[in-house]
Design a binder for these strands. Structure first.
Lengths: 227, 227
DNA sequence: GTAATATGAATGAAGG
DNA sequence: CCTTCATTCATATTAC
């Protein structure tokens, strides 16, 4: 009901879109916005959870004098200590990110040589074999395709929640302590640098043109997140 | 700085409105883009650093058997995975009966065509998609098989572990009851879920210079310095 | 409430 | 490439 004058606002939005697009605005597709949104929220969540975890653990340890930046350069993975309990390979977060990026660029990832390259690149971020990479792309393609098929197939095909469950449990906005995340975000602004030429596209990962590396892109690249 | 529920819901509606009605894309000012950039980079860096920090810490702790793999998994990259999780299909009683019947007859329930038929038949008795049917048979087969294995493996009525633990070798993780770490992964997920409807505007507008540093934020500052 | 279980779905891998 | 399996994840439900 807040948006009963929907159409007006829509028009406004459109005007805004046009204006800003022409002048100074960046236009993002809804998909891009969605992706960005998810990314931010996810990082926020991870940050918060890890922070909490660390906080609780650090009570029992003295980290005085430990340099956090370079002590543990090992890529994030469950490999390397006894956490390892799985036989099946699972991509680390970094690896996954890279894989997704490569996949999105859609280049011929099927080539054997290409796989080799990718695998060796990914090996820097954790345990991986060429077969793993190969399988990943294979599955990714197949499942992406299947999902597409399924969604286009029928109008009623979309699985929905049980009719009984709908609308009964709506209180999913549980109070999450966002203060910590806020502080984190604020405290780290020194991570940020000021090259405004870097487009938003780079953040989303659809970069085609690689420009000069500034600190920011270096950072992004270093963490293998989006570039 | 706390997000009020009301605000969040409001943001939800707004985002919904935008997503559904704004066809042409979302416009962001340069400033907003800028801020987004900061936030993503900051979160990315923090997430990574914290993850590594935690990993190193966990060496000194005995987390035996706790699988942390998913903790480090970027929810973003789990495309189509968790996002749809909250609308899980459940067969109606009638559907279930039919499914069981078909399964018992044991005939080629596997064919893709067969699945299609079954699904369309079941659709007369309630919501269902082909994928649902497919999964059902998949799970039914697997679990039936596993149960069979378990019962044949040991002649005694030994109390078994969780049904899913049966039949695997030892490197498995035992269900650890109450550990902080145990819930981290879930926590991340649910955070992500519960907040995935939060509007991006809120995220953008969230960065303000509130320096309410808690003890932990010192860490963050260290990161900042290292950057 | 907490722990155990049931179960839909995701996913790495194998077979064709 | 496709299908299928084995395992794992996440959550709803149930039992205590």
């Amino acid at each position: 009901m807040e948006w009963e004058n929907q159409e007006m606002q829509q028009a406004d939005e459109y005007l805004l879109y046009q204006t800003q697009n022409l002048v100074c605005g960046k236009v993002m597709t809804d998909e891009q916005v969605e992706q960005l949104r998810r990314q931010i929220v996810a990082y926020a969540a991870i940050s918060e959870q890890l922070a909490e975890l660390h906080k609780s653990i650090s009570v029992h340890h003295d980290f005085t004098g430990i340099r956090l930046g370079n002590l543990y350069r090992d890529p994030i993975s469950c490999v390397g200590h006894k956490i390892t309990a799985r036989q099946r390979w699972t991509p680390t977060a970094l690896q996954l990110q890279i894989l997704e990026n490569i996949y999105e660029q859609g280049t011929g990832t099927t080539g054997k040589q290409k796989i080799k390259e990718i695998a060796s690149e990914l090996a820097q971020h954790g345990q991986i074999s060429e077969t793993n990479a190969y399988n990943w792309f294979q599955n990714r393609r197949a499942r992406s395709k299947r999902k597409l098929q399924a969604s286009s197939g029928s109008g009623n095909g979309e699985p929905e929640a049980r009719s009984e469950d709908v609308g009964t449990k709506d209180q999913r906005t549980k109070p999450v302590s966002s203060d910590l995340v806020n502080n984190i975000a604020n405290g780290v602004e020194s991570f940020y640098f000021q090259n405004s030429d870097t487009g938003i596209d780079q953040l989303i990962g659809k970069v085609e043109s690689s420009r000069g590396y500034d600190s920011y892109t270096n950072l992004v690249e270093q963490y293998g997140l989006l570039g």
